[in-house]
Nucleic acid binder design. Structure first.
Length: 438
RNA sequence: GGAGGUGUCGCCUAGUCCGGUCUAUGGCGCCGCACUGCUAAUGCGGUUUGGGUCCGCCCAUCGCGAGUUCAAAUCUCGCCACCUCCGCCA
């Protein structure tokens, strides 16, 4: 949710943001109307309710006086006065009830509209659709396998040769887009987890292992029940959701809290399984483990002052790069275009790793500055000398296991099908330097 | 899963039986001011959160929701969380 006061002070800013995203601009006009209607309805209720309370305060003492009335004359006078008041109060009660209902309805209508409004885009974000990203950096040089004299194998074949990935049995047990990590593949994930957590804790992030099943409020607060809803698994019998990223439980962690500004920034590194339906991706990445329904991920999440958010965003990107640098994988960094930000992000940087057998870069990390958007929805605020106000939240991938494993296997393979483990990872692999075909 | 108990503005707490002067009491903590060589102590004032505002105030908020009533922290119903006991269980 965006600061509602902007709707009154500068609605064109909202319109411009919607326009850049390629989302509805007329929605803002509807909001303006609904906002006025809501305030009018609320004010009417407030006034009537005030009247009702004022009147009610006279009834109690009068009833007391009636009980203590000394003689019949006084009793009759008091009773008559009370009857008049009660008649007024009864009529007022009906009006209050009606006003309350229309104020509630106006409020609900306004809230429903607000939920459709995506976050204000950062004006630096390139305008356009998925293809309109800007490349910020390109790091490392893709290997020239032709010059080395062999055809690179894809990660599916390598995974099989090494006994590291078992896709067939994943499909047998759980259906398409599921897999097992086996032997060295499982050890590789554990090593990556350890390397990621070592780096995270070195930078002062707090390690977290989070719930992966959450209530609707957490899912909605993080903005995943909007455009992304079709990719979320819902447990119908218990009205809960499986998270697609630990961003959800990490954001929900401080929901309904007011955090002392002195404690900020709060930085977490959460490890969890992630579940994605991948609806609408039929035919894409059907082979291999680039796009799967369940995987594990280490996610960074930051709560900070809104004025520090852009610097934090740069920091998250730096930490992501540090991790991929350590793995010696060629990559590029892109500034994601406004049409591809998702509802929560004001700005988003993706890292894309070079995948030799695809001859292209594929997303392996994503870091978003969601400014105060999620914090407002989740009622997370900070308190400083200026009072209480929403804070900013940011998130960034430190290590999404399957895609990093794909990049490692494909980029570090040798002619005989073995794979060299990058030195940074070796301490977490018992010193092993190479994984060889079984 | 079953039985009983509890849920009040940061923390603790009064109020709930018997509805109205609750505009929610008191203590601790915190903030400001005064006094003070400094600290402490003491005194005075402030201290839930959100919304509206003609900047006087007004409205909502007592775990959440619904209901009864002229009027609900208080009565009724449903839900949630926690505690105790029983059952089951990795």
């Amino acid at each position: 949710m965006i600061d509602p006061s902007i709707l009154r002070s500068d609605p064109d800013r909202l319109r411009e943001s919607q326009r850049r995203r390629g989302e509805s601009v007329t929605l803002i006009d509807d909001l303006v109307v609904a906002d006025v209607a809501k305030r009018e309805a609320q004010q009417r209720f407030d006034e009537l309710r005030n009247e009702q309370k004022t009147l009610g305060k006279r009834i109690g003492p009068l009833q007391g006086a009636l009980k203590k009335a000394a003689d019949d004359g006084a009793r009759i006078t008091a009773q008559a006065e009370l009857d008049v008041l009660m008649a007024q109060a009864q009529e007022l009660a009906e009006q209050v009830k009606a006003a309350d209902e229309s104020a509630d309805a106006a409020g609900a209508a306004l809230d429903a509209l607000w939920l459709q409004v995506s976050n204000l885009v950062n004006l630096e974000s390139p305008v356009g659709g998925e293809e309109d990203f800007v490349v910020l950096a390109e790091v490392g040089t893709p290997r020239d396998f032709a010059a080395e004299g062999f055809e690179p194998r894809d990660h599916v074949e390598l995974g099989q040769l090494l006994g590291a990935i078992d896709i067939d049995r994943g499909v047998k047990v759980s259906g398409s887009r599921f897999f097992y990590l086996t032997g060295p593949g499982a050890l590789l994930e554990i090593a990556l987890l350890n390397l990621a957590m070592q780096q995270a804790t070195a930078h002062g992030l707090i390690p977290m292992i989070t719930p992966t099943l959450v209530l609707p409020s957490a899912m909605e607060g993080t903005g995943f029940l909007g455009q992304a809803a079709e990719n979320v698994y819902r447990i119908e019998s218990d009205d809960m959701y499986l998270v697609g990223t630990s961003e959800v439980p990490l954001a929900g962690y401080h929901s309904d809290e007011i955090i002392d500004a002195g404690q900020l920034p709060l930085r977490y590194a959460g490890w969890s399984s992630c579940y994605r339906r991948e609806a609408g991706s039929y035919g894409k990445d059907t082979k291999g483990i680039i796009r799967v329904h369940q995987f594990d991920k280490v996610e960074m999440f930051v709560y900070c002052r809104p004025e520090d958010a852009e610097a934090e965003h740069a920091r998250l990107l730096e930490w992501e790069r540090e991790f991929v640098d350590a793995l010696e994988i060629p990559y590029r960094v892109i500034d994601v275009a406004t049409g591809d930000l998702g509802s929560s992000a004001a700005r988003k940087f993706d890292m894309e790793a070079w995948i030799p057998t695809q001859g292209t870069y594929r997303e392996i990390t994503s870091t978003s500055n969601t400014t105060e958007f999620q914090a407002r929805r989740l009622r997370i605020r900070m308190r400083d000398a200026d009072g209480t106000r929403p804070l900013a939240t940011l998130n960034g991938t430190l290590c999404a296991m399957p895609r990093v494993i794909v990049a490692l296997l494909e980029n570090h393979q040798q002619a005989d099908g073995s794979v060299v483990i990058p030195p940074a990872l070796r301490p977490f692999m018992g010193g092993r330097e190479v994984i060889s075909p079984v």
